[in-house]
Design a protein around this nucleic acid. Sequence first.
DNA 1: TAATCATTCCAATACTTCTTGGATTGTTTG
DNA 2: CAAACAATCCAAGAAGTATTGGAATGATTA
Lengths: 215, 215
Amino acid sequence: MKNARKIKDLLYEQVARVGKVFSSPKRLELIELLCQGEKTVETLANEASISVKLASAHLRELRMAHLVETERQGKNIHYRLADKSVADLWVQVHTLAEERLIELQLALQKIASQPGDLVPSDRDSLMKAARKGEVVVLDVRPSEEYLNAHLPFARSIPLEELRQRLGELPKDRAIVAYCRGPYCLLAVDAVALLQQEGYSAVHLREGVAEWAVGN
Amino acid sequence: MKNARKIKDLLYEQVARVGKVFSSPKRLELIELLCQGEKTVETLANEASISVKLASAHLRELRMAHLVETERQGKNIHYRLADKSVADLWVQVHTLAEERLIELQLALQKIASQPGDLVPSDRDSLMKAARKGEVVVLDVRPSEEYLNAHLPFARSIPLEELRQRLGELPKDRAIVAYCRGPYCLLAVDAVALLQQEGYSAVHLREGVAEWAVGN
DNA sequence: TAATCATTCCAATACTTCTTGGATTGTTTG
DNA sequence: CAAACAATCCAAGAAGTATTGGAATGATTA
């Protein structure tokens, strides 16, 4: 059995198929979007600011690694993650990157200019406060994403509607806004708007995928 | 703030640096080797069956993603994983690949031709039996790797020495052999040898990295 | 049934990464 | 200090990936 080398090469090559998917920035962004729920190619392309053609090409890679599934619904083709563990892996990958890459840490610090970052250790207390109604957990993603999954006790006001719907929010309690995860800037904008309007708002880095990993 | 796109691109690009490391079969093999402990470039190159130059080039990628650290010891440079979470990520990646890629499942079935595969769910009972001495957990990796870390209750007999040291093993009890993980074939060979010599040996897919992930 | 729409396929170019050979650096040994 | 050694750097051709334009597919609408 001196073909052990060949067998091993084959095995690692297969695993690398999964790794390859996570090696392109645009594919990572698509994965993060898919973590929010099923989406069409066009939606994905728009959200990721790329052409439909390019999105389709990248999605093809995901499909070929069996990390996503597709389903035709009328004219559109809907993509979804093939398994929750794909979302988990995305979270692990970006978490490791945040732990190890100083450049990433610095870039992240810049966007969360305000100190208002709730760290994972605050999860329990956040939930306790949310349960009692002492804080408002605010989901500022598009409402379909909220409908698909959201944090416990969260209320949905999509960023686009936030300005008009400010009245629904209390001024005497802390508002904790979140979106798709640490690389999504919706919550950043939301917090800026809220603070400007006199609300006490902070930004939660985590999205539903990140939340799910930490239990 | 219409440079949101730029910021995002920058963030995903950083994360992709980590993903890129996991996108090459040879780098994956190097990572798996490093999961067994600190090693020199030459050792890594030999174990992975590649030239020192190529190993050095791949290790450079790992270094630039800050996933490994190096230390000079005399003439040699020792590489080690920068953090346990790198090993965890390796385990997650290959686990996902095994879940999703049929080709990989088939290839793995071939090498573990015998039925003797203990699945993760047997961990508790395996440990119970090992504690009582009802089974022998056998680590067939090179002894430095055993010394660095090994499964609870495991005994070390490197594959190379196994034939001469058969006498140390009991014939009346089950022997559970393991090595670096599911893609390392040392334990496969060990089990074949043991069975041929009349021992009741089975193969444990997991190595120390895999074991550590499941707690 | 033609026209439209969403998406993919195919082909071609630009861009990266892989891999090897030759020169170089830093360290130990004679 | 010279020779030997371990590893890296540099350069260059080979191989692979990204991105875009144009044609094709499959479903729906007029």
